[in-house]
Amino acid sequence: MEYPAFLPAGDCALSVEFGDAIHPEINARIRALREALERKPIRGVREYVPTFRSLLVLYEPCVLGFDRLVKKLQARMAGLRGVAEGKRRVYVIPVCYNGEDLDFVAAHARITREEVVRLHCAPDYLIYMLGFLPGFAYLGGLDAKLHTPRLQNPRTKIPAGAVGIGGEQTGIYPLDSPGGWRLIGRTPVRPYDASRAQPILYAAGDFIRFAPIAMVEYADLERRQAAGETIWEVREA
């Protein structure tokens, strides 16, 4: 297939595919297009779902048809450099590394618990996309040493804020939910809070960095958050 490809997803959506791989450069092109469309919206487009390698565009066929939308998107893309122009945002998320599977992950990698924490906190993880649950971020950049197979029998309830590793991925559970990832820690930060002015903390294209905290800090941050304080940090570059 030639990329970018414009594929109909029924009469109310089309998928702009930028490639067939999970790669930061492909993802950056999606972010660039999305930002361009948000700066200057196309009339009749309802919303977008950015994913690893495609942008799903949901639109009103009564306002514009498939062919016209493709032409408009092509015109927008012609003027884009491959990279996003917006600032690179890094959300620094405090994590208390006391998860019940931390020892398993360490043993699997044949390293110490401290080394697991160090490796997990080292990179800025790219948020490729959000999905699965409201505010669930698919992150890229987990150190290969930390790749750990999922649980054979998923837990029935993982608490919101749990930080885990599943295969080659790592992430934060935004809501209480069942799940099969290895739990290494927990953050008091809620990626999703319906009562917050910005209910979902971050978007595809942003980055996450984990910062280790002690149990006492966790309790303190939780208290401060309940009092309305912001307990995460956003660094822009």
């Binding site: 997803a9 999970i22 994913t51 495609s54 799903l56 949901l58």
Partner: peptide, 10 residues
């Protein structure tokens, strides 16, 4: 496939 967007009706 590599996870991508799902429109109602898919």
């Amino acid at each position: 496939v590599i996870s991508d967007g799902v429109a109602p009706g898919s």
